[in-house]
Design a binder for these strands. Structure first.
Lengths: 140, 140
DNA sequence: GTGATTGCAAATCTTTTGCACTAAA
DNA sequence: TTTAGTGCAAAAGATTTGCAATCAC
């Protein structure tokens, strides 16, 4: 199931999103999308790029993450004030947040059923519904 | 229904929480709790204190907000990375978040029914479940 | 070429910290 | 007293911005 043209998909995705497939964006897209679903912060992604000898500035990582998010390639998840997580899974789903470790984990959408949701207030529309189940270690 | 002893309740609440009822804490508690349910940031509370001629440093506001939260008098709501909101309503309930304005509004608990919640992962317990309905302006 | 993109360093914003000073108990 | 609490200014993080240099088309 491994593509024989490892980059072309990503190049297409970037182009389709109206983003020039620059060396930096392509490298970041590879890190983000080639290993399945990930939840990552800008700082983490930058560190990972450095480890793999990909020279990208932190500012560019921030730019790319926001551009990808704007293009619908990523989704921003807010669970922690002072740190932004980006989720490569853009389908409807919710999250476990491990408060002790800062880890974020997907919950498939069908595992959470929301009933009796109030309608959006007058003059507004629902942009998204986030359900975050915050868990902590059991240990006494 | 207005108490004839406007401060004594708050003094009691602070003492009960193990917090000395200092001039600053008492003033902040009045701002927070005397006008019903509020959602406020540290910066906003500080500004409000200044307007009312209450001299409190921003650092003390942060300290007080966290101490109140630790004591169960407030609840911290995370909806916006980079800014913390504190909610004077500590009962079970959820929130509307107006992304355009940064406003936060309570949704009574009974308006949201969560079914089929997954159980907490092995070794963890659920600390809290947050439901945030993000709404934006309807205007085209 | 030329307009989009990048890197870097500085700026910004929120929150925390260190420490001398002040005030409850 | 004596110990908790406060103010201030500095520090710390995360993120953004300005601008010259660079790259994709």
């Amino acid at each position: 199931m491994v593509s024989t043209r490892p980059y072309s998909n990503l190049i297409e995705r970037l182009k389709m999103a109206g983003l020039r497939p620059t060396r930096q964006r392509l490298a970041l897209a590879r890190l983000l999308f080639e290993d399945g679903n990930r939840h990552i912060t800008a700082e983490q992604l930058h560190a990972e790029a450095m480890n793999r000898e990909v020279r990208v500035s932190l500012a560019t990582v921030y730019n790319a993450l926001h551009q990808f998010t704007g293009a619908g390639l990523l989704r921003e998840v807010v669970v922690d004030s002072g740190r932004s997580y980006f989720d490569t899974n853009v389908s409807d789903h919710h999250h476990f947040f491990y408060e002790d470790t800062g880890r974020l984990e997907d919950i498939p959408d069908r595992w959470v059923r929301l009933d009796t949701l109030p309608s959006a207030p007058e003059g507004t529309r629902v942009a998204r519904v986030d359900v975050i189940i915050r868990v902590t270690s059991d240990t006494l």
